[in-house]
Every structure is written in C-alpha cells, then in structure tokens.
Nucleic acid binder design. Sequence first.
DNA 1: ATAACTCGAGTGATCGTTAACATCACTCGG
DNA 2: CCGAGTGATGTTAACGATCACTCGAGTTAT
Lengths: 348, 348
Amino acid sequence: MAQPKKAASIWDVARLAGVSHQTVSRVVNGSPRVAAATRDKVLDAIAELGYRPNRLARSLAGGAVESVTVLAADTSLYGPEAALRGIEKAARSLDWSVQISVLDPADTHSDADIIARLPRAGEPTIIMAHDEPGMRAKQVLLDTQPQAMVAIGPYTAEELAASPWLVGMDDGKAAAEATKYLLDLGHETVHHLAIPTSTGTFGGGKAHRAEGWSRTLREAGREVPDPVPSGWTFAEAFKAVQPLVADPSVTAILCGNDHLALATLRAAHLAGRSVPGDLSIVGFDNTPFTAYTTPALTTVNQDFESVGRGAFELLRHRIDGSNPRPKPSWPEPELIVRETSGPPRPRS
Amino acid sequence: MAQPKKAASIWDVARLAGVSHQTVSRVVNGSPRVAAATRDKVLDAIAELGYRPNRLARSLAGGAVESVTVLAADTSLYGPEAALRGIEKAARSLDWSVQISVLDPADTHSDADIIARLPRAGEPTIIMAHDEPGMRAKQVLLDTQPQAMVAIGPYTAEELAASPWLVGMDDGKAAAEATKYLLDLGHETVHHLAIPTSTGTFGGGKAHRAEGWSRTLREAGREVPDPVPSGWTFAEAFKAVQPLVADPSVTAILCGNDHLALATLRAAHLAGRSVPGDLSIVGFDNTPFTAYTTPALTTVNQDFESVGRGAFELLRHRIDGSNPRPKPSWPEPELIVRETSGPPRPRS
DNA sequence: ATAACTCGAGTGATCGTTAACATCACTCGG
DNA sequence: CCGAGTGATGTTAACGATCACTCGAGTTAT
C-alpha cells in the first residue's frame, strides 16, 4: 500500500522557493506587496509540491469566517432542497463552504447533540425550521449563539418582519389564495389535508397553511370542515385522505404539499372519483413532478431558492454588521392552474 | 447590538476549574487517568462557560480524521439523495461530520476549483460519479489523493470487484432484468429512453443501463432499436420521448429513471395511447412517487442507501488500513411490477 | 546630505487542540 | 526506610495558517 505521504504545508513551499512562509501566504492570498519574480518562484514551488492551503487552519488563525452549516431534517422534500440550492449558490459565489448536517427525525437529539454538529462555537448556521427537529434545533441555537444563526420557515409577513433571524415565505397568504381560487370556482367549501405542524402533532404548533385556509373560509362565510392531519410520506397521506375521497359531498381538497396532493389524486382515482369532475385537488410548492402527473396538478408555486439566498444574505449581515441588512422580503406565491381543479359538478 | 463575545476555549475552562488545559482535554476526550473530583470540577466549569470543543482545532492538532466531504452535482435525483442518506447515517453513527459540496453542472469547474472544495489536503471524499461533473471530480481526486477517495456510480459487477475505490450497483443487470421481463410479457422488442451518460452526451461514455438493455435484446435475437437520448429533467424527457409515443409500433419503453418514466407516461397519455394497454412503461430506481402515480409505475428498485453505507465503510478502510476491507458487494436489483406494464395488445 | 517614505520580505505571536514527555505524590515490597 | 512502580497532573511542542510588527534597502524630498 502506497505510503500516504503527508500533504505539503506552507513551510515546505517556503523552503523550496527559498522564501519565508509569510511570503507564501501573501502569494496564496493575493497580497499586492510581493515582487513578481518572487511570486513566480513561489508559484512554481506550489505547483511542484501540489500544495493546497488548509482551510481548517486558515479559519482557526482568525481569517475571515468562510463556512455555513445548514441544519435540516428532511432534504427530500422539494422546499428544503430548493432552499438549500439557493444557499449553496449564494455561498459558493462568495467562496464560502457549505456544510449540511441532517437531523434524524426519528432520533431524539439532545441539545448537546445538536450543538455538537457544529464544527466550532459560533459557526454560522442556517436552520430549516419547517418541522419538529428543525424547530428544536432553532430553539437550541437561539439559546446558544443567536448572533450566528438564521432560520428558514413558513411564517406570516408580520412574523418575518419582526424577527431579525427569520426568513421565509408567507404560507398563510399562499393558502388563502388557493382557497379563494377554489371558492371562486363555485365550490361550497374546501377541505384541507394538512402537513404536520412544527411541533409534530397536528393542532399543537403553528400551521400557517391551515390557518390561511380556514381564515379564508371564515371570511367567505363558509363552513370550515375539520382539517385532516397527515404525515409527510405518500403512504401516510394516502391513508389519511381516505375518508375525504370516500365522501361524495367533498368537492375540493387543498393539500399541504404536492406529495399529499399526489397521494390524494391516487386515492381519488382508486375510489372512482373523477378529477377534476367530481373532485378538485390543489397542491402546494410546485414540485417539479406536478406538471407531469395525469392529470397535471394545480399547485401554488413558492420560490424557495430565493428564500435560501435571502437566508444566506441575512446571515452574513448578522455575523458582520457591516454588510447591509437585506430588507426583509418574501417571494410572492403564485397559483399555477393545471388540470386537477375546476368548477364543481352542478347538483343533480 | 449584543457584543458577540468570544466563545470559551479549553484554556478558559482550565482557568475556571483551576487545572491545566491538558486535564480539560483529557476530561473532554474521556481519558481514564483523571481523578473523579477533578473531573467534576472540570465538568462544572464546562457547563458554566458553555464550552464546546472546536472541531477544526481538534483535527488540526492531528486528532483522528473525523469528517467526510461528499461531492455531488445533482442531489435532487432520488438515487444520489438516498445514497447520501446512507452515508450520513453511517457517518453519524461513528460521530463523523459530513460535508456536502454541490458541483454546479452548468459551471465548468477547473481542477483547482474542485480541489478547493475540500477543507484540507487529504480530506476523505466520496464522489457521486453518475454524471459528467461527478466523473470529472472523480478523475481529479484520483490524481491528487487516491488514498482518501471513493466514488459511487453505476458499474458492472466486474468493474466494481476490480476497482478498490469504487462502490455502486450493477445497473446493467438491473436493466437486463427489466428488459427480460418485458420480452417475457410478449413484446416484440423494447425501446429505451436513456439518461445522459457520464460524459454528458449520449454515446460517448459508458451507459450501463443502456448496455444491459441492448445486450438482453441481442441475446434474445430481437431487433435493437436506437436508444433515445434524454436529459435529466422532466421537460427534456417529455420532449425526447415524443417520437416514441407517437409511433404505434412501439409497445414497450424502458426508461432510464423514474423521472423519465413519468414524463413518458404523461406524453403517452397526451398522445392518446393507453398504458399499459397500448404501451408498457418501466422506470428505474423506485423513486417514492412511483407507487402513487396513476397508473402506478412499474420500476426497478435499487437500494441506494446501502450503497451509500458501503461507500463510507470502504472509505474508512482506505484511510485507515486497520479497518477491515468491506467485501465488495452490491445490492440486488428488484423489479417492482405495478400498473404500467402488461402484455402487448394482440395484433389485429 | 540627511531625514522621511516606500516596498519587499522576515519574525514572532496567535488560534484551540492533542501528543509526548516530565513531574510529583503516593503506595508497596524488601 | 528507601527505590520502584503507578496514577494524576502539569509543561512544552507541534498542527497549518494569518496577522501585526519589524527591518533593511532603495527612492524621494528638503
């Protein structure tokens, strides 16, 4: 087995180039105060040794912070995944490195566990706080290092504007919009298949999508049916939605996300109800597959990527006050009407 | 704004506890040679200051390597995402931290760019080498630090057994199995909508799924139609598959992954062809949504999570030869028959 | 002609942690 | 009663990089 010979350090380069280690550092970091001839010598030595600076040592030495850690429980959902992409892009363009730590939803992490995820105290952190483990992590970080953390989640416009460490989108408004659309179509009322709230059990924590939906119904003077709680998976949603699709009086269902909507579509099909003839289904998030189901899902688009970008900018501001505080903003939700929604069948 | 007061270091704890910093280090690392009374004092001090060890400094000081970096281009695909989950879990259980660096497929990274992703020379790295940026990264790492890298990708059993830094699944065999299934159903031949190969353009690099498919057809003495190249996105697949669904002589399509299969299903529906009556469609990967489409997709299950776990184990072995070399293994593909496949309609 | 300034490069401290070695107080056997 | 062993600590030196200084030589200003 080949001897894993130690990697070259800045001193090795310095020795080979016949200069001091500091000069090498200057070359590497692009300092202007180094003669061209010296620079070339150093560059040659770097190439010959295959030297690459050690990021760990760099940030230890008090160089500028250059990494973010993202804490998330479920990156298989489209929302978090897209937000992550936004963070990645924004960070990458500034040469920050991005570390992702996945919180296990099954596992009950102790507070110390969560903190141990961070490579160092004060590590800049972005938390995907859309579910229970995320909310938990948010609280822990808020207690230990509030200056270097930002959370992404669904909130109302007021909450977003008020909190200096929060970024997100106005889920309530998006839900209201979708609900209004269904009512305008002529549906008597709209049922709701709800994603779990941040506290894990439905009804406990905040549920902005459900709130926007119920508020709209109330304002329109309609009956507000009990929301149906579902888990995050297809299987859970499929099971939870059964009573809804079996009930012929239900003509419209607003689903908490597109996964639930797909499961609802499937359940409706198996129950022999035609969509959108007998039943209108509206999803949430505009997950890529929604445009290609049959029938294609009507859904609400959310620009998660820009939310991720926003989170990174806010974090930079909070770490280093000199960066301008990006003004709180949230992308406008946009209803995308496809084929699973339509007017209810006239009563016979 | 609250002064971001510096985090407590091992020295601060030592001072407060009235011991040397080394004793604190011993307590933190669970060394046995510390008196119980001293340990308690130190523990108290740690609690009071909210001290947490700095991972960066720890590994700088030559402590055991404890992090992996995963290089991947597209984590939105189910395969890489699941493999990543496998790596995460395996790493987490050993208290390693996982860093994920997303390679931008659009961006053309220079070799130096790729290397700069790693926090230090010799950083243990796992590469998702299923697409062009991944293959590129694999080559770069193989040149610079072959001892500390492992690649995940689709390969034949022979390739996997031969290469000491490769982990993956036998895509060719899986494709062969699916193709054989369709032939046994009575289809004259099977068409193939192919994912991009590792070199980006179809036909250039290796395409194990396509190879397994064509080999099976040849062995059965059937005509081998030209495979139809597609991109990774739904939109590209939808466009690419048009000629296939428009051709009534096509009765079976094996798709390179489930995304392509969903797009094909949609295209077939819009072209007025019934599935599986007129056309059988088989996907690849058993992405979660496939069980909930209408009709539900027949597909080939691959245990990506165990591949990810295997990659991590192999990496550990390669870094530290004392760990037993996990014997090369790859999960058996499993055909999952749902509703998009059936015998061809008898000729009229 | 001499003080003042500029430019290029070197020296030493520092970051937080662990490894290796040194020290010191006991206990135990002869 | 003394040397060896042992268990609990302290001391010093890395690790790889940056930063704040310092210093000498050449240029410019007075």
